[in-house]
């Protein structure tokens, strides 16, 4: 017993170090793997409030760019309105049917804090659980995909940006629906890599990459980027494709969080598959 106390006394610094280090590695591991530790709630969103205060001041310097991006987005959306199309048919019968059921809604949010040069980048926005945002929802900007919600507090959320080693977004070619997975290699915030595209797919420069219909996070066909360069090693089955991202992360100010009403239903059906085998 006395030896034990002596041991504890002699090595208390190391034991304290060991305990604290274990503690931090465990919460790091938990967070990396399951995203269950809701860290934002733990810190009470103090950091987010700090960033919002800073952002309220600095936002005035970029009002022009914000306006420009909103204008171009408005123009693009106006082009998609029904009255922008020439009606080719002779007559239309309007039936109030149940074929079209709304699947997605969008929650607009402002970027409060953003980083682009770390290996794992995160974005903080000023909307949270009070606005119906939950973890694992997709986020898009006015030009394309931005990231995935990781943790939510009452009025703030953090997004795991597409510029993050843990973010993998299911994508496809717009022209032939060939699938790939978008992963960032930590090199340049303007580019990302599209992996697991099979070698029989025909790839050319400037091919458009959009989100695929496999994901429950994003609607199908949200723009991601364009093929910048591609090569294939002789003994490799998959392409190395460098994608120029549509979203300019360094000037990102307005984003939309995607609420998918049918996500639970899809996941439930897919879960029954898993219990099958």
């Amino acid at each position: 017993m006395r030896n034990l106390i002596y041991f504890l006394y002699k090595y208390y610094t190391f034991l304290l170090f060991f305990a604290l280090e274990m503690f931090s590695v465990i919460i790091l591991y938990r967070y990396n793997n399951y995203q269950k530790a809701n860290f934002l709630n733990f810190t009470g969103g103090i950091a987010s409030q700090f960033y919002e205060t800073v952002n309220n001041t600095t936002n005035y310097f970029s009002l022009r760019e914000i306006n420009d991006s909103l204008l171009t987005e408005n123009a693009r959306l106006r082009g998609q309105l029904l009255n922008a199309y020439y009606q080719n048919g002779l007559a239309q019968t309007s039936i109030n049917d149940t074929v079209y059921k709304q699947q997605y809604t969008y929650v607009a949010a402002n970027v409060v804090n953003n980083s682009i040069m770390q290996r794992n980048n995160y974005i903080t926005i000023d909307k949270g659980a009070a606005h119906g945002i939950k973890p694992d929802m997709g986020v898009i900007g006015s030009n394309g995909v931005v990231g995935i919600i990781t943790s939510v507090s009452e009025h703030y959320s953090t997004i795991r940006s597409a510029l993050n080693s843990n973010t993998k977004i299911s994508c496809m070619f717009k022209k032939n629906n060939a699938f790939g997975s978008l992963e960032w290699n930590g090199d340049d915030p303007k580019f990302s890599m599209l992996k697991y595209v099979n070698k029989h797919v025909e790839v050319t420069m400037n091919d458009e990459i959009v989100t695929s219909n496999y994901s429950t996070l994003f609607p199908q066909g949200i723009p991601v980027g364009k093929v910048y360069s591609h090569l294939i090693e002789a003994d490799d089955n998959f392409y190395n494709i460098k994608v120029e991202l549509n979203t300019n992360f360094s000037t990102l100010k307005n984003v939309y969080v995607i609420v998918n009403f049918m996500k639970e239903e899809q996941l439930k059906v897919e879960a029954t598959n898993k219990s099958d085998n």
């Binding site: 610094t13 604290l20 280090e21 931090s24 919460i27 967070y31 980083s115 903080t124 990781t150």
Partner: peptide
């Protein structure tokens, strides 16, 4: 060690990376 722990905790809450800065500062403090 305790000071390192709190420094890391504060930085983690600003970077939204639980445990990352904490582990690094404790390691350095030791």
């Amino acid at each position: 060690l305790i000071i390192s722990f709190f420094t890391g905790l504060v930085m983690d809450s600003f970077y939204s990376t639980p445990g990352l800065h904490m582990g690094a500062t404790i390691f350095m403090g030791y």
